[in-house]
Simulated assay, not measured.
Amino acid sequence: MAGMQRMVGTERFNVCLQSGGREGTREDWDLICSAPTFEEGFALLVEEARKANWGDWSLLVLDSDRQEARFRVVNSWESIYQRALGVTWGSSYLAGKLAGICSRLFGMSCWAEQTAYQVAGDPWDEFFVRPSDGTVEREVEDLVRMDAATRADLAVALEKLRHEVSERRQTEHDLREKLEVIRRQDEAIQALSTPVLQVWDGVLALPLIGTIDGRRAASLTERLLGEIVRTGSRFALLDLTGVEIVDTSTADHLLRVVGAVQLLGAQAIITGINPAVAQTLTSLGVDLSTFTTQQNLQEGLRYCIQEAAPARAARTPPRRHGR
């Protein structure tokens, strides 16, 4: 890139980079559209950019009435690259990406103006995006008319730049595929780490192991509730034998799981609470007397069978004895 910048000059170089960024927004826009709102979709894109080492992106202002937006990026790949070279060209490829996204959002051509430069000492790069009648082609024509640069030189540089943009786009595509594989593997690991087992007629067991964070709690709650509905189970055994440490967050997630089970008309039984966990829960203000608890999974299953016996007997028709 440094060679092309020297060949065509910084202004042409930046125009071409912004053009490449604008053209590479189709997959970004598809990801944004997968969410209910633009803000939520952009948050998904921010996470993808962070994983791809594109820096930390944030949306500062989105004015739909004026069709303007302001973005902030910390440690973009262009800033890191330019710091290594000791130059200040600006993050034009990223500016083009943001302009392309806003063009799709507002339904009209937009242009991004960089207003802060991290490579020049600012704490971040900042971009102001708004509608513009200008096009990349017009910008190039204006630059060619401004000095004696030949169209041949510019054409060569553009071709090289298109090649680099194409390679970067392929790299992005490959990275997205790898991230998708990682996501599927993560889902499989989550499923294996929180198995929902049907241990008796109408009785499900959920052995919990390790730390229960918000993401894992949401996953196991969804799977447990789905199995309760699918099997028509009346009891859910939450076995904490494998949980050695409980903090405020874990206790809160546990209470939410129990409450969700009860909302479906099933009964949650907590088993396998060791003394340290019981002491921690008590110190956190959790009243264990409001829960049905059993010493271990075996005792919990015995409790469920005993509780279900009267109902099962009531449903069983009496036997008729012949004369």
Rank of each mutant, 00 (worst) to 15 (best):
G21H: 02
R130W: 02
H321G: 02
F235W: 12
A120Y: 07
E172N: 05
L31P: 01
A120W: 06
A112N: 03
S193M: 12
D28T: 12
R256A: 12
Q170M: 07
S193P: 00
L237C: 03
G202W: 05
I305R: 07
G134W: 09
S283D: 10
G134Q: 14
A205S: 15
Q198S: 11
A188N: 04
H253Y: 09
A49K: 14
D147E: 14
P275Q: 13
P310R: 01
Q295L: 14
C110R: 02
T241P: 00
D56Q: 12
S76I: 08
R12E: 09
V181E: 14
I305T: 11
R184S: 05
M4E: 14
W29K: 06
C33T: 15
W89Y: 11
T135Q: 04
R223E: 10
V199Q: 05
E180H: 08
I245S: 01
A278H: 09
L85A: 11
T37E: 07
L206P: 00
R184A: 07
F71V: 06
L85G: 03
C102N: 03
Q295I: 15
N296M: 05
F127H: 02
A69F: 08
E78I: 06
S103K: 04
S103E: 15
A95K: 03
E164W: 06
L44Q: 10
A155R: 13
P318I: 03
P123Q: 10
A69G: 10
A99M: 06
S19A: 15
R168F: 07
F13T: 03
Q279D: 11
A260C: 05
S58C: 11
I228Q: 01
A188Q: 09
A120L: 03
A157D: 02
R130F: 09
A268S: 13
V61K: 08
L44N: 05
Q279L: 14
Y117H: 14
L240S: 03
Q267K: 12
D133S: 12
V144R: 08
N53P: 00
I209D: 04
T115S: 11
R168K: 12
G300Y: 09
T271R: 03
G55Y: 04
G121Q: 07
V140S: 02
E137G: 03
G202H: 06
F38I: 13
V119Y: 00
D186H: 09
S79I: 08
D63Q: 05
K97N: 14
G210Q: 09
G322Y: 10
L197F: 02
D174T: 11
A35V: 12
I32E: 03
A149C: 07
V261I: 15
E164L: 13
Q298R: 14
L59G: 08
R145H: 09
A251N: 09
T150K: 04
T293L: 03
L17G: 10
R151M: 09
G100K: 04
R104F: 06
D201P: 00
N296G: 06
F235P: 00
L94K: 06
L220N: 02
T290S: 14
E307M: 10
T150C: 04
I305N: 00
S79Y: 01
A149F: 06
R6I: 09
A314Q: 15
